[in-house]
Nucleic acid binder design. Structure first.
Lengths: 214, 214
DNA sequence: GTCTATACATCGATAGAC
DNA sequence: GTCTATCGATGTATAGAC
């Protein structure tokens, strides 16, 4: 997903990358003000001291801009969770992880939208950007395993818990901490359930679904 | 949020309302095909045999169309959950409620987006439409109270669980039932936690009932 | 790389005739 | 209510000067 002509010399490449970062940062600012889907390329260009066609030296299209923002947001996410202090008790570490993720979403609604909701028609992360998202996912999964969670179903439940807390936080108390406060209890509730089921790992309860499983 | 000039005679009002319903239905179809934000008023008008400006006889703006869709989706939601069979055990009823809500979201991604995510820039439900959403919320809360949940914090956790299951279902397995299948276990996990925290722990079933819902 | 200039298709929205 | 005609703004894209 390289833009148009990638700069040749190191010096030029450096400036190119720097300018690209300011464009992405300004795009975030516009998205926060008007909404993610309402970013105007002409206004974005103005904000970074360029004319609209010049943006095409950095992005092939508007979707490519969203792609860069997607990767950028996921890098922020990785940065935040890797900065968390190590805990002897992996369960306590899990609590803090979930609290931090909920805070992260609460801090920036549109960032949460781009990263976790499919809100832009036609947008799909490029392989490179998707790899960043998977890196985050791998880190989270590793912490889960440390806390003794390995069953796929258990993992699905955990992702549901986290996405539920973050979504409610963003939707009903953006900038606040109403669901951040519930994170500890939710994680402890979850770990209690996991501990309950690991005694008999063979018998997996399944919901009487009306649809036949695939 | 009445459109432009509300029809005067009963006959005209009737046709107006009927046509309005077909417009909303066709808007859903377009949204399913191209995405919620990608609805084109010109194409919508074509689909219902009108020219684009004529749509303004039914909606003051595009946002007013979204508002009508929002109310419509919430009415569908109320219809679905009120159609659920009565259960002697309110806990079993809660399980089925959550399963049904997750199925509801899985069945229509864009409907879930409009109802539960803030994805359209500038859109905010009108008081009339918001009242429909609150009616749904009141029904859900009533069932929760029947199951012995009344604490506000407990309620916040429940909404997080439901929104998490539905969101994961929509985002990662649209049309499927991967998180629908986890609904029972999540609800039982939740009820166990509630029972643990209440001062007077009632009879908590240790093992879940295998009673099939239907 | 960035500019000016221009082009095209599409969009939501409005004015005014009927 | 529905139409035609039109508006301003948008995203997208290209050509060519510097």
């Amino acid at each position: 997903m390289t833009p148009t002509p990638t700069p040749t010399t190191d010096r030029r490449r450096e400036r190119h990358t720097a300018k690209l970062a300011t464009i992405v940062a300004e795009a975030w600012a516009l998205a926060r003000r008007d909404g993610l889907a309402a970013i105007s390329l002409r206004e974005l260009a103005d904000q970074v001291g360029l004319r609209q066609p010049s943006l095409y030296a950095y992005f092939d299209s508007k979707l490519a801009l969203y792609d860069a923002m997607f990767a950028d947001g996921n890098r922020q996410l990785i940065e935040v969770i890797t900065a968390l202090p190590e805990r002897d008790d992996p369960r306590e570490g899990l609590v803090e992880l979930v609290e931090e993720l909920t805070r992260f979403s609460s801090a920036d609604t549109v960032r949460h939208q781009l990263l976790f909701q499919r809100t832009i028609p036609g947008f799909e992360p490029s392989p490179a950007s998707y790899a960043v998202a998977q890196e985050f996912y791998a880190i989270g999964q590793k912490r889960l395993v440390s806390a003794g969670v390995s069953d796929p179903g258990d993992l699905d439940i955990f992702t549901a818990l986290v996405s539920g807390l973050t979504h409610q936080q963003v939707a009903n108390d953006p900038g606040g901490d109403r669901w951040v406060q519930q994170s500890r209890r939710v994680v402890e509730m979850y770990l209690a359930e996991i501990g309950r089921s690991t005694k008999a790992p063979s018998t997996v309860r399944k919901s009487p679904s009306r649809k036949a499983p695939k």
